[in-house]
């Protein structure tokens, strides 16, 4: 009887340890081809934050977002900027480490669909240097959404 309890105890410790180790080693998920929580255009997203920042934060931050928009700039080191020419307000998209080559699928001036996690919103204050940059909404862990 004692032996069975001991074996059971060792098993629980081993399974628990293995589970904790697995959890610890788990990589951040690739969200690019997961089902999005929000599908929206860059313009609609910018308008939503400008209109009611608090509500938009609740609605979009930390959510997996599929965003479509005009590709304004491509940074080959892993970022893409979506927005309209002539407007300082933009959606900046940081590519996931597994999707860095996705920039090759993009072309400045064309419409693209990207997906990532909404990670922040910023708008400079009056006297601040960043004020001239308009509204910026950021996405991380993103990539170009494959057409199905």
């Amino acid at each position: 009887m004692k032996r069975i309890i001991l074996i059971g105890f060792v098993l629980v410790i081993a399974i628990g340890g293995w589970y904790a180790y697995k959890m610890y080693q788990q990589k951040t998920p690739d969200v690019v081809n997961q089902h999005p929580e929000v599908v929206i255009s860059a313009k609609e997203l910018l308008d939503a934050f400008d209109k009611d920042t608090a509500a938009a934060r609740k609605q979009y931050i930390d959510k997996i977002i599929e965003v479509s928009g005009n590709v304004k700039r491509i940074d080959t080191t892993g970022s893409v900027v979506l927005g309209e020419d002539g407007s300082a307000s933009e959606v900046t998209v940081g590519l996931d480490r597994r999707h860095l080559k996705d920039v090759e699928k993009l072309k400045t001036g064309s419409v693209a669909v990207l997906q990532g996690v909404c990670s922040g919103y910023d708008k400079g204050n009056g006297d601040d240097l960043l004020a001239s940059l308009g509204t910026t909404i950021e996405l991380r862990s993103a990539g170009v959404k494959e057409k199905k």
Partner: peptide, 16 residues
């Protein structure tokens, strides 16, 4: 010179 960094924008290799 000015920088602004959104903390939720940091990407890690491990989820935890």
């Amino acid at each position: 010179i000015q920088f602004a960094v959104q903390m939720k924008g940091f990407e890690f290799e491990k989820q935890l």
